[in-house]
Simulated assay, not measured.
Amino acid sequence: MKTLQFKTNINCGGCVRGVTPSLDGHKSIKSWKVDLESDERILTVEVEDSVSPAEVSRTVSEAGFSAQPLERD
């Protein structure tokens, strides 16, 4: 398991409801949450090791939102 973080435009409860079926339906995403209190609206995702950031971004994009991977130092 690994944790990935993304800057996203998921910015309200309605947006969270909109993206929930896509993220919950992805078999390799084990858990996720969006920090709606942060100005950057950070999406944190727990995924299997084989999942790439691009795959998560694509899943979010298919739900109508954007998710840009955060660079780790």
Rank of each mutant, 00 (worst) to 15 (best):
T3R: 12
L4Y: 05
Q5P: 00
Q5A: 11
F6C: 01
T8D: 01
N9W: 02
N9S: 02
N11E: 09
C12H: 02
C12L: 02
C12W: 04
C12P: 08
G13P: 00
G13H: 01
G14H: 05
G14M: 04
G14E: 00
C15V: 04
V16M: 03
V19A: 14
T20H: 08
T20N: 10
S22N: 11
S22W: 00
S22G: 05
L23D: 07
D24W: 00
D24F: 01
D24G: 06
G25W: 04
G25K: 06
H26N: 10
K27I: 06
K27N: 12
K27T: 11
I29L: 09
K30T: 12
S31A: 15
K33T: 11
K33D: 12
D35C: 06
E37F: 01
E37S: 14
S38P: 08
D39V: 10
E40I: 06
R41M: 09
R41F: 13
R41K: 15
I42M: 10
T44A: 07
V45L: 07
V45Q: 09
E46K: 12
V47M: 05
V47F: 02
V47Y: 02
E48Y: 05
D49T: 11
S50F: 02
V51K: 06
S52N: 04
S52A: 13
A54E: 15
E55H: 06
E55N: 08
E55W: 01
V56I: 15
V56A: 04
S57V: 04
S57M: 04
T59D: 11
T59C: 14
E62V: 12
A63R: 07
A63M: 10
G64V: 12
F65K: 11
F65P: 06
F65Q: 06
S66I: 15
S66V: 14
Q68K: 14
L70I: 15
L70F: 01
L70G: 02
E71K: 13
R72M: 10
D73C: 01
